[in-house]
Simulated assay, not measured.
Amino acid sequence: MLKPPPASSIPPLPLAGRRLTPRRPLSRELFAANGMSRTGALDLASGVGGKITKDEVKSAVDDYEKYHGYYGGKEEARKSNYTDMVNKYYDLATSFYEYGWGESFHFAHRWNGESLRESIKRHEHFLALQLGLKPGMKVLDVGCGIGGPLREIAKFSLTSVTGLNNNEYQISRGKELNRVAGVSGTCDFVKADFMKMPFSDNTFDAVYAIEATCHAPDPVGCYKEIYRVLKPGQCFAVYEWCITDHYDPNNATHKKIKDEIELGNGLPDIRSTQQCLQAVKDAGFEVIWDKDLADDSPVPWYLPLDPSRFSLSSFRLTTVGRTLTRTMVKALEYVGLAPQGSERVSNFLEKAAEGLVEGGKKELFTPMYFFLVRKPLSE
């Protein structure tokens, strides 16, 4: 297997220039320029529940929590009901994500002196460069969220990108953001399960996934679908959420951290790096290279959530910012502007943040196990 050059020898990639979208108030332009698309607590509150009716949010939270080990749920139930579980999760959590993270819901390898938003854009550009994207190529984003990476990669590489997503609310948000960004002609969305994609064999010139296929109940089955729709000789690149070799399933503290991450992120189970690598091989791919990019990130990936750190540029992700968000959500729920159950969503997302920070500090978990693989020219 080919190995990449050490990350320390690779200079940061140049960042694409930001541009403000016309015909919007200046406050929204500044917000968008920083990668944020939710302007305030009322926007957050109005989005909680997604396509779930507001009077059904509380029961959706009840159902979601029943799936999870943190509340006594079983892994088998999460895997067999993953479509319902993941859809409920993203209906409940998307407005919180967008409020805190902007349009790209993922972590990033980060250099000293680099802002969180800059690192996120470079992380997306890195993926495009590894895939060798060129103008005119037809690309698939598996589990695209509201399309932040999709829009960035399409503009960076001048490709056409299709986002696959099974959550109706996220697709509706993504289409609106595509319209605002002016990329509706080259970027689109398809609502479907990535375990059963509605595409013909050998459709795409490249496929990528960013912290998304961790939701799959069966990684081999998911990777086989990606293999099927990818053209022979072309590549698939992914950032996977994984537990590392430091994780001990018999350690109660380790298990608690894993449960918190699964609860707060809609995961049926977190697989190890070796399980993911074996799964992609079992699906038929040739491995070009793989690496946990968290290993040599100059700035820890979990820093935005670390309670010991404070930042004005990503204030909403800090402990103080998250505390203020919970307080606002609680108040808005009390006066009826946010649906009942909103505070509980905020609480399990806070549990996730705690688990992610502890998992990162103890090196038990990584959100950026990267691998680049190729579909053979002849099968």
Rank of each mutant, 00 (worst) to 15 (best):
Q170M: 06
Y334G: 05
G147L: 10
R228H: 15
L127V: 03
N251S: 11
M1P: 00
E363H: 15
A252C: 10
L324W: 00
A41G: 05
A294F: 06
R117Q: 06
Q234L: 04
D245H: 11
K351T: 13
H254I: 13
I243H: 02
R19M: 08
L303R: 12
P300M: 08
Y99T: 05
K255I: 09
P14C: 07
L44Y: 00
I210V: 14
A237F: 00
S59Q: 11
I257V: 15
S27W: 05
S200V: 03
D282V: 08
L30F: 04
N81M: 14
N165A: 10
L44K: 10
E363S: 15
R322Y: 03
T318H: 00
N165W: 02
L303E: 12
I171R: 06
G185M: 15
P5K: 08
V220K: 02
Q278D: 14
D63G: 11
E363A: 14
G163R: 07
Y71N: 08
F199P: 08
S8F: 03
D141W: 01
P339Q: 12
S297A: 10
R179W: 07
N112P: 05
F348Q: 05
H109K: 15
Y90H: 15
E114I: 09
V139A: 01
T325W: 01
F107Q: 12
R18S: 07
R374L: 02
P249N: 13
P249Q: 09
Y369T: 07
R326S: 12
L372S: 01
K66P: 02
G264Y: 04
V373I: 03
G266Q: 01
T186R: 05
D218P: 00
V220S: 01
P135H: 09
Q170A: 10
K258M: 08
P217Y: 01
S184W: 03
E358S: 10
V280L: 03
N250H: 10
I120Q: 03
T213G: 04
P307N: 10
A353N: 08
S160C: 06
G49V: 04
E350Q: 14
G336Q: 12
R309D: 13
K196G: 08
L13Q: 10
E343G: 04
A338V: 09
T39Y: 15
R122G: 00
P249K: 07
L332H: 00
H68P: 11
G284W: 07
E211S: 00
A212C: 03
F204Y: 09
R316A: 11
E98W: 09
G143Y: 02
S342R: 00
N112T: 04
H246S: 13
L129C: 11
Y97I: 11
